[in-house]
Design a protein around this nucleic acid. Sequence first.
DNA 1: CCCGCTAATGAACGCTGTTCATTTTTATAG
DNA 2: CTATAAAAATGAACAGCGTTCATTAGCGGG
Lengths: 215, 215
Amino acid sequence: MGIQERKEREKEALRRRIIEAATGLFREETYANVSMRKIAARIEYSVGTLYLYYRDKDELFLAVQEAAFERAFDFIQRLPNAEDPLERLRGLGERYIQFGLENPDLYRLMFMMEHPMQALEESDGWRAGIKLHSLLSSLVEECMQKGRLPQKDPLKMSFMLWSMVHGMVSLKITCRLDIYNGTHLPGCENLNLDVDDMIQGTNNMVMALLNDLAE
Amino acid sequence: MGIQERKEREKEALRRRIIEAATGLFREETYANVSMRKIAARIEYSVGTLYLYYRDKDELFLAVQEAAFERAFDFIQRLPNAEDPLERLRGLGERYIQFGLENPDLYRLMFMMEHPMQALEESDGWRAGIKLHSLLSSLVEECMQKGRLPQKDPLKMSFMLWSMVHGMVSLKITCRLDIYNGTHLPGCENLNLDVDDMIQGTNNMVMALLNDLAE
DNA sequence: CCCGCTAATGAACGCTGTTCATTTTTATAG
DNA sequence: CTATAAAAATGAACAGCGTTCATTAGCGGG
C-alpha cells in the first residue's frame, strides 16, 4: 500500500513547511507578534489547517524550538580537537557564544522566549538541548580527571560555565549591555566598546583563570 | 494657588496607582497577557484614561520597570559590612540571587521581558539598574587594589560575575533548570536536587576559587 | 450662574487565537 | 466511469486585544 505511505510523506512535508515558515516568523518577531494567520499565509494555507497539525500555537512553537535546538547542537558540537580538554572546553564556550551572537533570534526562541510550558510535559522537544548539556558535563569531568580543573563538584562547575555564557549572550540579546556603550555608565562613555569582543574575551579570561588554578 | 498643586498631587497619585496596578498584573502574567483594559479595570478607570498618563503600553511598562529597579537596588544594596571586600562581593552575588529567586516575576520584567525598546531612548528608566552595576564594579576594583582578586580587566571581571548570576537566575526562571530535576538528564534522575541551593552554592564555589587565586 | 477647560469615558477599528459547520479533494468499491 | 465514504482544507464567527477620538462630566474662575 504505497498510497498510505505517500500520504504520510505529504503530511510530514507539510509539517516541515509549517515549521520552516513559523521559524522564519518567530525569528523576525516576538512570540506575541507572530500570528497563526501570518504563518498560514506564508505557506498559502488557511488558518484552520494549522490546527490539524498542531493543537495550538504553543505546541507549534515547541516544534520550532525543537528544530532550533538541533541546529544549535550541530553547530556547537564541532569543537577544535585539541589534546588539552580544557582547551576543548574553552572552544565549547566560544562556539556557544558564537552561535548565540550570530543567531540571536534562534537563541531567543530557544532560551528566552516567553511561552506557556504545558506542551513540554508530554514531549521531548529538548532532546538536542540535553545532548548539548551532556557534552559540557562530560568535558568538565574529563578536565577534572586529568587535573586540568580544580576538583570541585562537576555539576556546579558545568552549571557555572553554562550560566556564564548564557548570561553574557542573553544580556547582549536583551540589549542590557547597551549600558556599556551609551552615556549611561560612568567610565564607559568613550570606550567605543565592542561588546561581542568583550564577551569572547571574558570567556577566555575565565579559562585562563581556571588554567592558573589547575597548575 | 493651592488648587493647581492639589491637582498635581492627584495626578501623581493616579500615576502611582496605575503603576502599582500594572506591576501587580505584569508580575502575574506575561507582557502579552496584561491588557490595558485589565489595568484600567483594576483601578476602576476606563481604558482611555491610561492613555492620558502614558503614551502607550510600552511607556507604561517602562515606568513599571523603573519602579522595579529601584526596589531591587534597595534590597540588594544591603550587604554584610565585612572587612574583606571579596566577602562583600560574595554577599552582593548572594543578595542578587536571593532577590531574583524570591521575586522571579519582578526579575523577569526587569531583565528578561520582551518589549519594545523605543521608550528607553528618551528616558532614564534604568538609573537604579546602573547604580547597581556601579556597586558591583567599584567592589571589584576595591578587591583588585587590595589583592583579593587576580589583576585582570576589572570591566571583564564585573561583567563575568554579573553574567554568571544573571545566567543562573534567568535559567531558573525560564524553567531551563527543570532538566536537572526530571528524568531528562542522565545522572540526575534521583538526585532530588534543590536548584535554589545549587545556585547559591555555585556562587560560593566561584568565590572560593577566586579566593584561592588571590592567595 | 455660567463659561471654558480639563479629565474621563466607551464605542469603534483592525488586529489576535481558536473553533467548527461547510466545502473540496481524494481514494476506494461497484 | 461513477458513486460513496473518508480525509483535508476552508473561512466565517466569537471573544478579547491595543489604540483612537468624538462625546460627556465635573469643577475652578469670573
